[in-house]
Amino acid sequence: MADLTFYTNPMSRGRIARWMLEEVGVPYETVLLDYATTMKQEPYLSVNPMGKVPAIVHHGHVVTECAAICAYLADAFPEAGLAPPTSARADYYRWLFFAAGPLEHAITNRSLGVTPTDSQQRMAGYGSYDRAVDTLEKAVSAHRYFAGDTFTAADVYAGSQVAWGVQFGSLPKRAAFEDYLARVQERPAYQRANEIDNALMPAPAPAA
């Protein structure tokens, strides 16, 4: 049994964790789960009772939620240099959790057709979709990466949100987003992770 086990499905947010694992560069075991069966059954429910992926188990410790997995791996393997020094983590934490909280909620609600009224925006953590997107644009425009001039785990998580949003249309194709993605998607670990997950995708059904 490997010290680090990764539970995933190639058609899931597990792609974010895969990218982070490839950036860390340590050996890990992959366990592929199916949405309708193994993801909703034991033994996986003992790992994550939510029945969702991804999850990792490192030396017996379970970590779920993509942002948490990215932050955990950056701290567990400091030699990879994916977290700033603790004295310089303000932007790192800010944008990592902005992407995990307000940004994801704004995108999800918009996809579900939920638009908060002016008064409801005071209750919603993201305010409005447009405000969240404009804030994201300012973040990727301020520096080369989310936490400054050095690539970090915040770029794995928040960068994945930008990539998926632009690809699937849940974020607008603004020049700032595309310029940022050109920087992060050239990384060998990103390309390697994509190759691994693409190879694990189910084969298309034969034409009738």
Rank of each mutant, 00 (worst) to 15 (best):
I69H: 05
A71S: 03
V140I: 14
T115A: 08
C66N: 10
W164I: 11
A208M: 09
A90T: 08
M1F: 06
G60E: 08
V62Q: 01
A68N: 02
D134F: 03
T117Y: 01
C70S: 07
T117M: 14
V114I: 13
K173T: 10
D197H: 14
A17Q: 02
L4I: 06
L82V: 00
K138E: 15
Y180L: 04
R131A: 15
A76V: 02
G169N: 04
V53D: 05
A68S: 13
Q41G: 01
I69S: 11
T108S: 12
E79D: 15
A189G: 07
M39Q: 12
E137G: 13
V63R: 12
I69K: 05
Y190S: 07
F98L: 10
A175V: 00
R174K: 14
P27C: 02
M50D: 03
R144S: 15
A203L: 10
V133P: 04
A153R: 08
P43T: 04
S119Y: 07
G25T: 00
S141R: 15
L82M: 11
L4N: 06
F168V: 04
P43C: 01
V47G: 11
Y92F: 13
E79V: 04
T64H: 07
I196Y: 02
G127S: 07
E29G: 07
E23R: 11
A205F: 06
L45N: 08
P202H: 10
A80H: 09
Y129K: 04
G148H: 09
A153M: 13
Y129C: 00
E42M: 08
R131I: 03
P78K: 14
Q41W: 01
